[in-house]
Design a protein around this nucleic acid. Structure first.
Lengths: 352, 352
DNA sequence: TGAAAGTGCGAAAACGATTAAGCTTCATGC
DNA sequence: GCATGAAGCTTAATCGTTTTCGCACTTTCA
């Protein structure tokens, strides 16, 4: 590896001068700079990140915390797309991305926070984890610039997908398609679930929909078995819904299976909608109507906020950035507007 | 940040002693070691990675090259699972993972190789990229320990999913189910495609199958539109196949759509099979019969080989590790064994 | 003309660790 | 009594940068 020292002897100047020339400091003459740069180029010089880090306390490296319990994490379309966008955003600005080690086996390092400090991350994006673990709290309070995704800590920047608005838009869309009996199989309890569910109730009330208790059911996220079972229960009700909302797109396929298995058609006999906007769901007929979260924007916002926090700590607002999703109109929600309101929409064709 | 120096003054010893005590060197007394360790613990000491790197030329950090053109990369089930497994494998051994920056904007750094050297990666896993780019070649020849996935370079360790065997197993399985007219829509040209396709031909010959030219078609990977079109063409043949193989699971859904749209049933009227074993395909009825690649093992092998290359460069064999997949038996391939051979299987129920 | 200001560069300390070599001290063997 | 060796610790150099301060020289301007 060629170092600044090597360049300095070739150019007949000091290493200090080389450093300044390469960093475009103002107290070096133009011609000297040119010469040094040229030689550096020719000799194939590139900076030693470790030395630079040691001296400047800047790593141009940001940590990403990505836990993957329950088949989530990297292999989840939502997080994968967010990470991809985040990666592109920060790389454009000269930063690299390192995973925060979640299987720590490095001597002397015993927590996320220590790992991050040890690696000298300039900032950390907490994308996907158990936000209630004490270790996360320690990390968040550790003094490193932090941005969280879809979770709110006091005094910490967060980027949130607008779940309340999203659910409102989705339900409103379905309502406008003429549906009046809408069931919602929601995911396991979490902040995200809370906001979607309460928005569902609120929006339903605003629209004048009455939602029987048995229309609200629970099934874990990304669990097709659970949604299958719950869908069957919904279909067997005396007054089944005309449209079912699922925890997410993936789990919606559990409902899809239950419905098809009974010889019912989507959306002819019953409508369904997901949440997320995963890619595959746009490629299977009937394409799934869903609330597509703007993963591109989410990742970009996490990255930009984090870099801003790193580069302008004083002037960067600690705030929550809300990113809107939008209804993706697939073929899974029938238009039943033509049916008169007292005759329950969709029910005519409905057979269990 | 508390440094070794801080510990040394508290303990009344030199920094050298602290370093050796913490690194468990043999020339430090047991009681001194104990005392130093205790103080280090109490003071919340953790090592400064940059300083350590600078001195030792070891980063305990491995680079992962992950290009994501064409919606591939991170957001592809196959690569995401491999990466996940790789991550777990190396983290267990105390290594971290950093993405090789593919949108380089760091001053002085102009190529993958320079980026890797600048960051001091102990090794690099090339998982997903355009293997024919000159920059990759430069990286591969750059002297850093390298392991590639699904691509062979001379004198470079590689981990390969056994595409030839996989295709043979899959086609044999289909044959044993009684199918004699099997079409294959293969992916765009690549090493992987080559080996699958030639294995398809070879296996067909061994089984005594005659494959008409019009049964072999091309459609890009992960492109449902292309497979849709090709599937339609196959269905419209005078003698349509009884089973269609697709480039991959994702694109198989294009065929799925074409088939369902024509009112045909899978597998009642026609059978299909994918390749990869993506998760969602196991959750949609009819579940897709496919060759499931062992992403867990692939990632693990890449990690283990790379670490071995790093830690025992002299004694580690430069080799190609082949990882077997296995047929995942879904519901998309019909058993047509009962049908006599001269009466073309499946054709009885076939209507276009 | 001489002081002040500006320009261009170098010396040296520092960042936090590792490690070869050297120095004491003490027990051992002959 | 003395070389020998081991044990335990220190000294000091080093990794490749950055950055403060200072020095020498030139220009400007009263």
């Amino acid at each position: 590896m060629v170092s600044m020292k090597d360049i300095s002897v070739v150019c007949g100047v000091s290493v200090a001068t080389v450093s300044k020339a390469l960093n475009d400091q103002s107290d070096i003459g133009q011609d000297t700079k040119k010469r040094i740069r040229k030689v550096a180029e020719e000799m194939g010089y590139f900076p030693n990140t470790a030395a630079k880090m040691l001296k400047t306390n800047r790593s141009y490296n940001i940590g990403v915390l990505f836990n993957h319990e329950d088949y989530s994490g990297l292999t989840h379309d939502y997080y994968a797309f967010v990470l991809d966008s985040l990666k592109n955003t920060v790389e454009e600005k000269g930063y690299d991305i390192t995973f925060v080690n979640t299987n720590i086996r490095r001597k002397g390092v015993t927590s996320y926070l220590e790992h991050c400090r040890s690696r000298g991350f300039d900032g950390v994006a907490i994308v996907c984890t158990d936000f209630y673990s004490p270790e996360i709290l320690q990390l968040v309070r550790g003094g490193i610039p932090i941005v969280t995704l879809d979770h709110l800590f006091n005094n910490v920047c967060a980027v949130m997908s607008n779940n309340a608005q999203g659910m409102q838009d989705l339900l409103t869309y379905i309502y406008e398609k003429g549906h009046r009996r809408v069931a919602y199989i929601h995911g396991a309890d979490s902040a995200v679930t809370q906001s979607r569910l309460s928005s569902f109730y609120r929006t339903a009330a605003q629209l004048g929909l009455t939602i029987p208790d048995e229309y609200i059911r629970m099934s874990p996220y990304r669990d097709t078995r659970g949604t299958y079972v719950e869908t069957v229960k919904l279909l067997e009700l005396r007054e089944p819904p005309t449209c079912i909302l699922y925890p997410d797109d993936f789990s919606a396929f559990g409902g899809y299976n239950a419905i098809q298995e009974r010889g019912l058609r989507i959306p002819g006999d019953i409508s369904i909608a997901g949440y997320d906007g995963i890619r595959i769901a746009r490629h299977i007929e009937p394409t799934l109507t869903t609330l597509r979260q703007d993963t591109q924007e989410l990742g970009k916002m996490v990255g930009e906020k984090l870099l801003s926090l790193i580069e302008h700590p004083k002037t960067t607002l600690v705030e929550t950035i809300v990113v809107e999703g939008h209804v993706f109109e697939g073929n899974s929600v029938a238009d039943v507007k033509s049916v008169s309101e007292d005759e329950s929409p969709g029910s005519a064709k409905f057979r269990v």
